[in-house]
């Protein structure tokens, strides 16, 4: 129990347990396989947005290229299993190791840049990756995509079944959340926040800022790669458009809308944007008879409004609401106490 308390420190167990309950109970109410698919995708994308939240919210470094790392994971898994009939689990690990190496090298080079230019450099990397997977069509299938990626199975349990896969993905999300929370609480996490506030001040304290920035960049890339492998095995078909800058931007929007300074914000933002996405598509098709990516108008508007009026994201609003409820409760209790004392 003490050990558990060490991992789930402080008040962490409360949001953790509520999310767990939601995840466990949702399949009881969700009957359509369509919504189950959306829930699985939320889990997969949450892995990436948690990584981005570490990078963006804690270390203060922007990335508009995480779709590339997502793509590296997906393509390593896809090519090794569909073309060379390799084991999915080994392919996943190869994908992660490969992404770690690639992102470490990239990170060492580009993390010297700041702000706008870092955003620009990560975008360039995403575009180059996109052109490469289109061009290397002997391996990747080029523009027509890669088909026939087998679904995962774990100890004879076929994870091709969406319900099993749902639990499997969210189990991984929980592990990643725990891991990330403990990173934040460790001295690395404190260093990251110090880098976020002032790189130069941190450096004068004798900290190798570059090293920590690269470590957290690679870690977030590895999360994205893991998500990519899961995505490839779940969808069983991958094509280049899923790994373009538009997806990187979407990921950034998820993190920013949810609240950049919190891992819960990343998960919340991912869920909200995904449901919004499906909802807009539904409204657009049934009521206005428009198809195509019309949802980008609404995205654009949401990004602008959220950034203008609640730059700390939705999680901040929820927290403030929670505090308000608490303070009202405390005031109410005090009032009752006063009146009873008066009566006595």
């Amino acid at each position: 129990m003490a050990k558990l308390d060490n991992v789930l420190y402080g008040h962490l167990w409360r949001p953790f347990a509520s999310l767990m309950v939601i995840v466990l109970l949702l399949p009881l109410f969700v009957k359509s396989s369509y919504i189950l698919t959306v829930l699985i995708l939320i889990g997969i994308y949450s892995l990436i947005s948690i990584g981005l939240s570490l990078l963006l919210g804690y270390a203060g470094q922007i990335s508009l290229g995480h779709a590339a790392f997502f793509g590296i994971g997906a393509y390593v898994s896809g090519v090794l299993t569909a073309k060379y009939a390799g084991s999915p689990w080994i392919a996943m690990v190869i994908g992660i190791v490969f992404t770690w190496l690639v992102s470490y090298v990239i990170g060492m080079a580009i993390l010297r840049l700041k702000g706008h230019f870092l955003a620009l450099a990560t975008m360039a990397i995403n575009i180059i990756f996109f052109i490469l997977i289109l061009g290397l069509d002997e391996f990747t299938g080029g523009a027509s995509g890669l088909v026939g990626i087998p679904s995962l199975s774990l100890f004879q349990l076929n994870l091709g079944n969406p319900l099993y896969f749902y639990f499997f993905v969210w189990f991984i999300v929980f592990v990643i959340i725990l891991f990330s929370m403990n990173i934040i609480r460790s001295n690395i996490g404190r260093l990251l926040r110090s880098i976020h506030d002032s790189e130069i001040a941190t450096e004068t304290l004798g900290v190798n800022v570059a090293k920590y920035k690269v470590i957290i960049f690679s870690l977030s890339a590895v999360y994205a790669s893991l998500a990519g492998s899961l995505y490839a095995h779940f969808i069983s078909f991958i094509a280049p458009p899923s790994f373009y800058i538009t997806f990187s931007i979407l990921l950034l929007v998820m993190v920013m809308v949810g609240g950049v300074h919190s891992i819960w914000g990343a998960v919340l933002g991912t869920a909200i944007i995904m449901f919004l996405n499906e909802w807009i598509r539904y409204i657009g098709q049934t009521y206005f008879h428009i198809s195509g990516q019309v949802e980008i108008v609404v995205y654009g508007l949401i990004i602008i409004l959220v950034m203008m009026f609640m730059p700390k994201g939705l999680v901040d609003i929820l927290e403030r609401l929670w505090k308000k409820i608490k303070s009202v409760q405390i005031k109410g209790a005090e009032k009752r106490k006063m009146t009873t004392e008066k009566g006595a």
């Binding site: 955003a119 929007v253 980008i296 108008v297 654009g300 508007l301 602008i304 950034m307």
Partner: peptide, 10 residues
């Protein structure tokens, strides 16, 4: 950065 990206998307 995010705001100008939002404007661009919009």
């Amino acid at each position: 950065i995010v705001i100008t990206i939002g404007v661009s998307t919009f």
